[in-house]
Design a protein around this nucleic acid. Structure first.
Lengths: 268, 268
DNA sequence: CGGATTATGTTGGCTAGCGCACATACGCGG
DNA sequence: CCGCGTATGTGCGCTAGCCAACATAATCCG
């Protein structure tokens, strides 16, 4: 069937929704609704950014492709955020590329208008900067997670983050694709997903992954998911939050820390 | 011997040096020279930022410490950059901690003054945002590198990045410390460093690592180093660049590494 | 309906890096 | 100049995840 033009509204994107009326009105006429298909490349590595994107139902993904062909996701962008921060950060390009991870809708805004609005130094600017800060947390957490946690844990993290950006609990996505997101082999994903299916947490068939038991994911995921969620909640509190946020027993921030650089990685 | 008060000047920091005269003059009276000792913790995870730091001879490091005690460097900050971006990005804290990786001098600026200056939306702001963008590249490249490259390659990358921030070619640093930076075992570093020493590229003794042959490092390092360097050069071209820059076949010059520090919270 | 395409399952061998448990030796401080 | 504290060297078993080469099966499409 043809892609039916589903109704969407800009305020399905949390950042747009959080804009004060005045700023929103100024932008609204220029928000161009776009349909994005799975696999579409929105930014090529090193290319100039023509638009910024505010997904509503689509999910986007920033990638880095290495010389040897392997790739890793750097960060994902759903209706909680936007794609194209490097525009107002000063470079007009990024060394990463951006692709559509889940087909759907969104809005885009011409680069020049975005920069213009940013330079007004209003709430829009503040919002964008805070979002960027949250994105930085997500990226650095991913770096640490890549290093220290198992594939299954990382898969759980990725599924939860993706789930939070979705209206349903079914991802349209091959294991191959998931593998390229996590930067691992497809077989590795098959194995990890197999374990989760065995545990009754997910079910999958050709190109579809359905989450049956969200709390099952939460019980296996590493701390990284909660850290990212918490930081988003802290930085963008006024922004509508996904239904259920996973925040374990965590009492407060300001944990017991050692005084010098951690020298005993094996101290449990 | 006592730590002799070595002469330093704010323009030894590339970001400060790149400020237009007017903005620099405004800030100068408030730049407070500080001596930072190896191991000092400038920001604790989740703590409030009291100052931003502009290293001149010191090298700082942003870390993330995981629940199981293992840790990874997220980004380093030397005289090419500053510590404390989350201040003007909107959060007043970061989930990461910042420590002194190489003792030395620098300047710090009270948080409030920094924010004030940033809000003037002058060149200072632009500079800070560009720096942040470069930092993002460094972080995401690290994430990908963690995933796809060997320990030796990563060690080379780290050594080169650190070298670029140093006046000499000798790091005061134990293998244990390097290990905690890279997020690997100490024994792994011993092995990797052993290989490099065997190849005549470095020499080390108890707590000292001397780089004998920079080009040797460059020939073994992965692409990640060049990507980061190139991005810094692109985003901060007006900023004074370190002496020798590694950019293989590339015509353009490029170099500048970013780091941020703040010792406000725990001072020994 | 049937064949081509593509996603997933499986297997075996391989290696990097982990964890642990030491041995050794450097060099600072008394 | 001696000695202890700590940085470094090594060895061994182990495991996660890699690489390659398939077998099987679901879906698309003619």
């Amino acid at each position: 069937m043809p892609p039916m033009p589903i109704q969407q509204s800009p305020n399905q994107n949390h950042l747009l929704a959080a804009l004060p009326a005045a700023e929103f009105e100024r932008l609204a006429p220029h928000l161009e609704p776009v349909e994005m298909l799975l696999g579409d490349v929105l930014y090529e590595s090193g290319g100039l950014l023509q638009h910024v994107y505010f997904p509503t139902t689509a999910i986007l993904s920033m990638h880095y492709v290495m010389e040897n062909g392997s790739s890793s996701e750097i960060a994902g962008v759903g209706n909680e955020g936007m794609l194209g921060i490097s525009l107002f950060m000063g470079g007009n390009t990024t060394p990463s590329r951006a692709v559509v991870q889940t087909g759907g809708q969104g809005y885009r805004l011409k680069a020049q208008l975005m920069v213009q609005e940013f330079k007004r130094a209003g709430l829009m600017q503040q919002l964008m900067l805070r979002y960027t800060q949250a994105l930085i947390t997500q990226m650095s957490q991913t770096a640490a997670c890549n290093r220290h946690h198992s594939l299954v844990q990382q898969l759980c993290r990725w599924l939860l983050l993706t789930l939070d950006r979705m209206p349903t609990n079914e991802l349209i996505m091959t294991q191959e694709l998931v593998a390229s997101m996590l930067g691992v082999r497809r077989e590795g994903v098959t194995e990890a997903a197999g374990k989760l299916q065995q545990a009754g947490v997910i079910r999958y068939r050709r190109g579809h992954i359905t989450v049956l038991d969200r709390s099952g994911l939460e019980s296996q995921v590493c701390e990284c998911y909660a850290v990212v969620k918490k930081e988003f909640a802290r930085l963008l509190p006024d922004v509508r939050q996904p239904q259920d946020i996973f925040l374990p027993p965590q009492p407060a921030q300001g944990e017991a820390v050692v005084h010098t650089i951690d020298r005993s990685r094996s101290r449990k």
